[in-house]
Every structure is written in structure tokens, then in C-alpha cells.
């Protein structure tokens, strides 16, 4: 068992404990059948008990087995491109529509993680979004969000 396991177990223990309390509040039994809180209690209770078990078993872990969530090498650099892009993408889709937001999203990621030039990134993203638009919206009639440009 590792330090990461202990952190995860602690998070699950707190989360599961709170969920158990809320489940009990909802009512465990109603007449002859389980109430709304019964099944959530099974899941949350199981999570809590197993988290406790994981915490207990990880007490004897040797320091040599310890691993941390620290990012190594290029990992953080790559993630720093993907994470903000993923967080902003739905917001941009909401305001600009699927096609313009996707062009921006792809161009930024091609440039950031692939280290392509801006022109290459923009051309590639226009081509990809164009193909997707024809395939999904025109041919398969998929209802993707539209923005002020109608795309």
C-alpha cells in the first residue's frame, strides 16, 4: 500500500461517511420495502468500510513502496495544455457554437502539445472540423450546439 492509497482512502472515507449520513436522513425503510436511502447506503457504506480497511492495511506499508501523485518529466507540461483546454471548451461551445469552438480547441492543442506552427495547427483544425461537420451535421443530422454564426 502506498501514500497515494492512503490519500485516496481518506478522501473516500470522508465522502462515503457524508453520503451515509445523507442516505440515513432520506429514510432506509418505507413500509415493507427499502426506502430511498437504503441502496445509496449500501454503496456509500461499502465505500466507507473498504476505505477504512485500506487505511488499516496501509499502516504497515514500508517507505520504499511509497509512490506519490507528483508528475514526472514532461507529464505536467502536457497536462497544462490539455486541462485548461478541456475546461474552457464547453464554455466556448456554449457561446460560440460547436464548429468555431472546436477549431479553437484543436488549434490550441495542436500548437501546445504537438508543437506545430500556428498556420499548420489552424489549417489542420479547420480540415478536421469541416470533415466532422459534413459527416455528423450534414449526413447524420446530429444536433450539435450552434452559435451566432449558425455553426
Amino acid at each position: 500500500m502506498t501514500r497515494v492509497d492512503r490519500i485516496f482512502a481518506l478522501v473516500m472515507l470522508v465522502f462515503g461517511g457524508l453520503a451515509c449520513l445523507e442516505s440515513i436522513r432520506m429514510g432506509l425503510w418505507k413500509g415493507e420495502v427499502p426506502g430511498s436511502g437504503f441502496f445509496p447506503l449500501v454503496g456509500a457504506g461499502g465505500m466507507t468500510l473498504l476505505a477504512m480497511l485500506l487505511l488499516i492495511t496501509s499502516r504497515g506499508a514500508s517507505p520504499g513502496e511509497s509512490k506519490t501523485l507528483v508528475f514526472q518529466g514532461n507529464e505536467l507540461k502536457q497536462l497544462s495544455g490539455f486541462v485548461p483546454a478541456l475546461l474552457f471548451y464547453p464554455i466556448f461551445v456554449h457561446f460560440l457554437g460547436f464548429a468555431p469552438a472546436s477549431v479553437l480547441f484543436l488549434a490550441v492543442l495542436f500548437r501546445r502539445s504537438g508543437r506545430y506552427g500556428w498556420i499548420t495547427s489552424l489549417v489542420a483544425s479547420f480540415v478536421v472540423v469541416g470533415v466532422l461537420h459534413v459527416g455528423l451535421v450534414v449526413l447524420l443530422k446530429a444536433g450539435l450546439p450552434k452559435g451566432p454564426l449558425g455553426l
Partner: peptide, 20 residues
């Protein structure tokens, strides 16, 4: 196909998958 080119495209597919 370089992965930095492929990964963002798959993410767009994930978005379409979740949305539609």
C-alpha cells in the same frame, strides 16, 4: 499519425459523444 495530432481529435469525439 503523431499522437499530439490524434489526441485532440479524439477529445472532440468525446465531447460529441457526451453531448449528443
Amino acid at each position: 499519425i503523431p499522437y499530439p495530432m490524434l489526441a485532440p481529435i479524439v477529445l472532440v469525439f468525446c465531447f460529441i459523444g457526451a453531448y449528443t
